[in-house]
């Protein structure tokens, strides 16, 4: 059985995806503070929720990526 190797490139890519998720979650928090007129201290007091949501988004993006990857593979096979 061959070992799974996570390349440096792959790690960088995943980190970028998670980073994007984090930024989106962070911006969502900024938006909700403005929208619901709550305290700006929530920018850091709610970081745990932001972090949690960033993982949820990362997982969602992961599912979308898997679907795209599957479709592309199928197209390539059929070509």
């Amino acid at each position: 059985m061959s070992d799974w190797i996570i390349t440096r490139q792959r790690r960088r890519k995943e980190l970028i995806f998670w980073g994007i998720s984090f930024i989106i979650a962070f911006l969502m928090n900024v938006y909700s503070i403005a929208r619901f007129n709550t305290s700006w201290s929530e920018l850091y007091s709610q970081l745990h929720i932001v972090l949690l949501i960033s993982f949820v988004l990362y997982a969602l993006i992961g599912i979308i990526r898997l679907i795209i990857f599957g479709i592309l593979k199928l197209i390539r096979k059929m070509a």
């Binding site: 928090n29 909700s32 503070i33 929208r35 619901f36 007129n37 709610q46 929720i49 949501i53």
Partner: peptide
């Protein structure tokens, strides 16, 4: 006191 904005959004 209102719930934190982010929770309200969710």
């Amino acid at each position: 006191p209102p719930a934190p904005g982010f929770l309200q959004l969710i």
